[in-house]
Every structure is written in structure tokens, then in C-alpha cells.
Amino acid sequence: MLDLQPLHDAILNGDAKTAKALTEQALAAGVAPLKLVQDYMVPAMGEVGRRFECNEYFVPELLLAARAMKGALELIRPLLTASGVQPVGRVAVGTVKGDLHDIGKNLVAAMLEGGGYEVIDLGVNVAPEQFVAAVKEKHVHIVALSALLTTTMPSMKTTIEALKQAGVRDQVKVVIGGAPITQRYADEIGADGYGESAAGAVALAKQVMG
């Protein structure tokens, strides 16, 4: 039986090369792709997030781990699609209007992909109308809003308003996150969920989708 713990560790340590090599090995040995993702990759990222919160890991470690996971995922994704595995859900992710920071958003996107979600990344400085369009055209289940600055937080409110105006607010769950965001803020603007950090993205997505 192939010991897959090293794959977990490679991601945790931000070792992209090893992570990819071990993934190839595992796939060649017939390990189910979904098992690799769910039992090893997602937990590895979870641990990365925990360490970040405890200030053991900083942004460089996050970036390296995310790169390792993405590299491994790239090998797995075609197999998942080919085998007809449906994504757990579809999520539109973006940094709100006026905000050009993408690091948080990118990490969340990476986490969600690893967690089996199909991610539509709308990028940065995303106007409310674009979120509305994503809901209408791509039939997403979750809209995930990121903001790094307190000055762009109001855009979260206007985005939720725009969804209401367009009559699609009830069709999606809205989750928000970013350095200045708090649970209370999420409550005040009527978001469905709030993510303290990218690490909890998958758990949060599961929770709001019910």
C-alpha cells in the first residue's frame, strides 16, 4: 500500500516538485484521484491555514503551499472531469470593486478547487454587475467576495444590493472574507457566511450550501 503521507507533507512544506512527483506516482499506482484530493491535499491545506492563523506560517509559506497543491491538482483535474465527477458546487470568486488585491482570493480559489468545487475566478476590481452576470449566466451556487482594505468593504454591501436588485439574491449564498472583515460585518450586510481565513474556505462553502 502506497504511503501517501509524503504527499500531504510535500504540500505542507511547499515542495511543489515533490508534490507533483508523488501525485504522478500515486495515480500511476491506481490510487483514486478523489481520494488523493480529499484525504491528503485538502487536509494539508487545512493545516497550512491553521499554522497561518497561529503565526507559524506567513504569506510566503502560504504561497508555496498553494503552488504545490495547484501543481498536484493540475494532474488530477482532467481525470476527475473525464470520470464524470461532478463538482460539489460552483463558486464565483472575486475581489470587490475598487480593490486590486488578489492574494486572499487566489488562495480561496485554490482551496475550493482542491475541495472539489468549480471555481469561476472573476479577478479583481469586480463590479457588482459582473457578480450578477456570473450568477445569471454561470448558475453559481456561491458568490465569494474578498476585500483587503477597509475602504473597499462598502463594495461588499453594494454587491449584495445588486444581487437583490437583480432578483437573484435568493439563488445564491454569499460569503465574504478578507483582512478587515468580521462576522458582525457579515451579519450587518446580510451575507450568509464569513470566512476568517482562506483555510476555512471549503468548510464554509459546505456549511452554507447545507
Binding site: F58, V59, I103
Partner: peptide, 22 residues
């Protein structure tokens, strides 16, 4: 621009801590 000790490292320090490629 973001939180974290790692970001204040310069190139030599980064290489020393994470290796050339990283």
C-alpha cells in the same frame, strides 16, 4: 504590503530560507 515576516526578507534571505527555486 501584507502581513508577515516573510515579506520583509530580501532576495538573499529568501534564498537562504526557501532555496533558490522557491
Amino acid at each position: 504590503l501584507a502581513a508577515g515576516e516573510g515579506l520583509s526578507l530580501n532576495q538573499e534571505e529568501l534564498v537562504a530560507r526557501y532555496g533558490e527555486e522557491s
